[in-house]
């Protein structure tokens, strides 16, 4: 009695994905925000007629799935919010090389040095703060200060958010394991833990927490949702290219195991095309387009004005040391 039931299920799930007839769909593992990806996918499907099936989850969860699946992975392309996942997959030779025509669309420092993935968008880590809880002049000049006892009970972090792991990785890369560990242990004692950056920025805005470590775009999205009148928080960029202001590079890749490599490559090429980058800039996602010459959402300050930290994707590396440190400290 099981068989017909399962067949029915399979049939139904099949017709749910993709729309275009004739063309085999490609599968995208998507760690980006589903709404943004959906807008990009729609435009791609309209332009090429290639249907795209999207599996959305945390970038790290998806990278993990690709690692587990190995050569049998159903994924054709992978789009994520942070470079370390891409570096890890690249080290495992799971990503296909992209042609120079694709790589050349964005500055080299935003992409894989081995041409295994290409940068699509950028965000900058920052500190959301609530002026009623903490004065602007008291805000830390360095990320590492948040681990000091002075900040006890005032910080919010989301240690299981995909964006927190690269930040820890950056601290390790810049200051070494021991300093990073002391900082994390201090942070653990100081901070209230939230499940994700969205909750962190909301808590700061309410005044529940004084400051919260987030990515700059969460604050803009909160302001869009609540309107300026209800936005009681501000954003603080760490000055002097402090490591707290690291750039997060969102990138895309084609899986080496893909059976639709040409189509997947077209999709990745589309992501860095002017058309897609304009969609990205016009969306409510508040990320900086990686492609030169495409202006970001007008609500955002120019990227150069933020003076983000400089750390190459190679030095930032994969997430493994950071993940291990988080576990040792007991934040995950």
């Amino acid at each position: 009695m099981l068989a017909p039931v399962v067949v029915a299920a399979a049939a139904l799930s099949g017709c749910g994905a993709g729309g275009t007839r004739g063309q085999a769909p490609i599968t995208l593992y998507n760690g980006q925000h589903p709404q943004l990806t959906q807008a990009l996918v729609k435009a791609f499907e309209a332009q090429t007629g290639i249907p795209v099936k999207v599996r959305s989850d945390d970038g790290i969860v998806l990278a993990d799935e690709i690692l587990q699946e190995g050569p049998r992975s159903p994924a054709d392309a992978y789009l994520t919010e942070n470079s370390p996942e891409l570096m890890l997959l690249s080290q495992h030779h799971l990503l296909a090389r992209l042609p120079a025509s694709v790589m050349g669309q964005v500055p080299r420092r935003y992409s894989s040095p081995t041409a295994n993935w290409v940068g699509v968008a950028l965000r900058v880590d920052a500190l959301a703060y609530n002026p009623s809880r903490v004065a602007r002049r008291s805000l830390p000049a360095h990320l590492l200060q948040l681990g000091q006892p002075a900040w006890r009970g005032k910080v919010a972090i989301a240690p299981t958010d995909s964006d927190f792991v690269p930040l820890v990785g950056a601290v390790i890369a810049r200051y070494g394991q021991a300093t990073a560990r002391r900082w994390l242990e201090g942070l653990k004692a100081n901070a209230a833990l939230y499940p994700d950056d969205e909750s962190v920025v909301a808590a700061v805005n309410r005044g529940t927490e004084a400051v919260g470590l987030v990515n700059q775009y969460y604050w803009y999205r909160l302001r869009l949702d609540l309107g300026p009148a209800a936005t009681h928080s501000r954003l603080w960029y760490f000055p002097g290219r402090d490591i707290g202001g690291i750039e997060n590079i969102s990138g895309a890749a084609v899986l080496a195991s893909s059976h639709h490599r040409a189509e997947a490559q077209r999709f990745v090429a589309f992501l860095v095309s002017a058309a897609a980058q304009h969609i990205l800039a016009a969306s409510d996602d508040f990320e900086y387009p990686a492609r030169p010459g495409v202006a970001p959402n007008p609500a955002l300050p120019p990227l150069a004005a933020l003076r983000p930290a400089v750390l190459s994707v190679v030095r930032l590396g994969d997430d493994l040391p950071a993940a291990s440190l988080l576990q040792q400290v007991g934040l995950t």
Binding site: D58, D64, L67, D319, Q327
Partner: peptide, 10 residues
């Protein structure tokens, strides 16, 4: 779930 979201070891 936290482990799944931060670690590369199911």
């Amino acid at each position: 779930f936290g482990e799944l979201q931060t670690q590369f070891a199911p």
